[in-house]
């Protein structure tokens, strides 16, 4: 494409403040200000995400550093003094004496990283294939959508497990732990692209028959320019809604896989791995090892889900 992006070049410099004002004046922001649910869930999600990002600054210990661990600290209840070392921990310690609070912060990093990366992967793949299928139709459409149909026959968690199982078989044993995170992202992302592709395709089918697309075709713009410049900006709001809900689902999927022992390895525990570890001690009385990671996971998934739910109501695209 030799054309320069039109807007970049024709916008006056005074646009930045007016764009901010436009954003503040928008119906979305208005609806946001009037919805306590949306504001609270946005605050909770933001708090959790920020504390995961800045985990090294907040956490009291680095749970991945073996030198900082003291086995004597094992099974310390929350806010209680350890009988041997005299140390206290906000949320107690696990079997190996790791501070639960710190492991949660670090675990959340892995959960969120896998979640965001998997959704990003699914969004990019889904938009690309959905645009192609919707805009060109014909055999391209049939091929992409039949593939999607076949995959949709299987629940995404099963697809993710299969991909994980196959990848585990392919990678040499010594690299398995290192690769696990990337395999997780690939597995969850690949299992999730279908819904983006379907929504994008549906929206593209509607948009491509609108006359503004005809006008662009009449001028002679190429299909790639029409898809990216004209259609894509008009179909982003349903994608945004699904992406938000998908993020919650991806976090849950990651936790589920890790809980089942086919996800993040114990050397790099995510929230799911922590719950898996904690489950073993729940019935013997060490409830905190499971309780705090579980609460964090719930808070994370719930706040993101509530945001997604609110977004769907406000943007009101015709979604399933």
């Amino acid at each position: 494409m030799t054309d320069q992006p039109l807007s970049a070049q024709s916008e006056p410099q005074s646009v930045t403040p007016s764009r901010l004002r436009r954003a503040l004046d928008s119906d979305l922001y208005y609806a946001f200000k009037r919805s306590p649910v949306a504001m609270v869930s946005a605050a909770v999600a933001l708090l959790l995400i920020l504390s995961a990002v800045f985990a090294p600054l907040i956490a009291t210990t680095n749970p991945f550093d073996p030198t900082s661990l003291n086995l004597m600290n094992g099974f310390t209840p929350p806010m209680a003094q350890n009988a041997f070392t005299g140390e206290t921990f906000l949320m107690g310690t696990d079997d190996q004496g790791r501070d639960v609070f710190s492991t949660i912060l670090y675990g959340m990093r892995i959960s969120l990283f896998v979640g965001f990366a998997a959704v990003l992967f699914a969004v990019v793949l889904g938009i690309f294939l959905g645009l192609l299928a919707g805009y060109f139709g014909g055999w391209i459409d049939s091929f992409i959508m039949r593939t999607a149909d076949v995959q949709l026959t299987f629940p995404s968690i099963l697809v993710a497990m299969l991909i994980f199982g196959i990848a585990k078989g392919i990678t040499p044993i010594e690299h398995r732990d290192q690769m696990a995170i990337w395999v997780l992202i690939l597995a969850i992302g690949l299992s999730d692209w279908v819904q983006f592709a379907r929504v994008v395709r549906g929206a593209t089918l509607v948009e491509k028959n609108k006359d503004y697309v005809s006008a662009a075709r009449l001028i002679g713009r190429r299909p790639s320019a029409i898809m990216v410049r004209h259609i894509l900006p008009n179909i982003l709001s349903p994608v945004l809604v699904i992406a938000t809900i998908s993020l919650a689902l991806a976090i849950i999927a990651e936790a589920t896989l890790s809980f089942l022992g086919v996800g993040a390895p114990p050397t790099q525990p995510s929230l799911g791995t922590l719950i898996r570890i904690g489950q073993g001690y729940l019935f013997s009385g060490e409830w905190w090892i499971l309780f705090f990671p579980a609460c964090t996971l719930l808070a994370l998934a719930l706040s993101v889900n509530m945001l997604g739910d609110w977004l769907r109501d406000v943007l009101n695209p015709r979604l399933k």
Binding site: A255, T256, F259, L260, I275, L282, A301, N305
Partner: peptide, 12 residues
């Protein structure tokens, strides 16, 4: 809350 609570947590 139901959709945010992973199945394994409900079970536990």
């Amino acid at each position: 809350i139901g959709v945010s609570l992973p199945t394994f947590l409900i079970g536990i």
